Computed example of a mutant assay.
Amino acid sequence: MKPISSQIQESLWKLSFIEETERELAATLEAVGRGETTWSTVLAQLETLDVLSVVYLRLIQDLRTHFVAVAVPIEREVQLRLWLVLLQKMGRYWNTYRLVEREPRQTEEEWLETLVHADQATVEQWTWFQLLQLILEARAELEELEPMNFIQAGIKQEILLIIGMVEPQKRLVFDEEHQWQTEHLWFRKIQPTDGSYLQQYFTPNIGRYLSIDSFAHPAIVAAYIQQSQVEMKQGTCLVLLVFERDSQAFVGCLTLNDIHQYSVEIGLWVSENQQGIGYGTALLKQAIAIIERSIPTQQIIYTVEKENQRSIALCEKWGFQLEEELILEPTPLKNKYRAMLRYVRGAKLQGLMTR
């Protein structure tokens, strides 16, 4: 994709609905190019914008052109955080445009003519697809960026995850009533009425090594279930509650997270009263089976905290290979830095969908 020409950029900046903060960001990018300010200033401004700005097109072009070879860790971190914040903002619009058919390409002359009469919705949709094309073109470059510490490794993985999630692809959506069974267990999708299971069995000891500390508050439980159901309908996750087949006793939870054509990440937990009898192994085995039989992807991810020796032994037993160490930064639901080990295993599904 060729760079957005200065003529189109000037036309975009003149649109009546372009906010002053967007124009300020464009001016800062010009100043960076002249050596009058730093990329940290760009990052600070970017974090305050709430719109899907046309200025992001220029930002991506500048990042790819001028900010690749760095020798100082803080410069690499600013670079990675710029990409991450930009992609997070773009990701908020993914659900709006993921099913929209992209309009045929226009020549620059045709687009300039369109701009004369464009409204905000038209420009926003055009911006989304232009950004999508730019980030897909930049994917290989981002994969080659070398993190200089474990925090940067975590940021880089999140960047690549978002790109994999927003890239157009076919996804499998399981029927609402779909269930899975093994000799001793049965698995079903989480339902709006399942909050009591999470509140009762997701204890502090369970949350110690997971991405959320607690499901003690009903509002957190309700939000988690609601978001899980939205993502399951999109085909981007699968959240299963697990029960014993004979007694119907609750066993735990199995999740397939961030499903896309490049990878799927497994998460699981077993209630404290059911631990030590092999159910962790059974859940991991079932997760691998679902992925290998049904989900079109290339790699299975298992990310575990360095201190969680039981989970490390479990995934290594099932053929996962250590890929890298990284640090995940605090979130509203897990307010601490987490030292993680990322394990990977190839998916065996035949006839993988092409990119």
Rank of each mutant, 00 (worst) to 15 (best):
P3D: 15
I4T: 12
Q9T: 04
E10K: 06
W13N: 04
L15C: 02
E19M: 11
T21F: 00
E22F: 00
E24T: 08
E24V: 05
L25K: 00
A26L: 07
L29N: 05
E30P: 03
E30C: 10
V32H: 11
V32G: 09
G35P: 08
W39F: 15
E47A: 08
D50R: 15
L59N: 05
I60D: 01
L63K: 10
F67W: 12
V72R: 13
V78K: 05
V78E: 07
V85P: 00
V85Y: 02
L86T: 04
L87M: 05
L87P: 00
R98M: 09
R98N: 06
E101N: 15
R102A: 13
Q106F: 07
E110T: 07
W111C: 10
T114C: 09
L115I: 02
V116I: 10
V116C: 02
H117D: 13
A121R: 14
E124V: 14
T127Y: 01
F129Y: 06
F129M: 10
Q130G: 02
L132T: 00
Q133K: 08
A138H: 06
R139N: 11
A140W: 09
E141D: 14
E143H: 07
E143L: 13
M148V: 10
F150A: 14
A153G: 15
Q157C: 03
Q157P: 00
L160C: 06
G164W: 08
Q169P: 02
F174W: 13
H178F: 12
W180V: 10
Q181G: 05
F187I: 08
P192E: 11
S196T: 11
Y197A: 01
I206A: 00
R208C: 07
Y209V: 03
L210Q: 15
I212F: 02
D213G: 06
D213K: 11
A216N: 12
H217R: 09
A219W: 13
I225C: 05
Q226G: 12
Q229E: 11
V230S: 04
Q234N: 14
G235R: 03
V239S: 04
L240Y: 07
L240S: 04
F243T: 13
S247K: 08
Q248A: 07
F250V: 01
F250R: 02
D258W: 05
Q261Y: 11
L268I: 07
E272N: 10
G278A: 03
K285W: 09
Q286G: 03
E292V: 02
R293A: 14
P296I: 01
Q298K: 15
Q298G: 14
I300L: 12
Y302T: 05
T303F: 02
K306Y: 06
K306S: 07
E307H: 11
Q309L: 14
Q309T: 14
S311H: 09
S311V: 07
I312N: 07
A313W: 13
A313R: 15
E316I: 01
W318E: 12
W318I: 05
W318D: 05
G319I: 03
F320P: 03
F320E: 09
Q321G: 09
E323L: 10
L328C: 06
L328M: 13
L333G: 06
L333T: 12
K336D: 08
Y337P: 01
V344P: 02
G346M: 09
K348T: 14
L349H: 02
T354W: 10
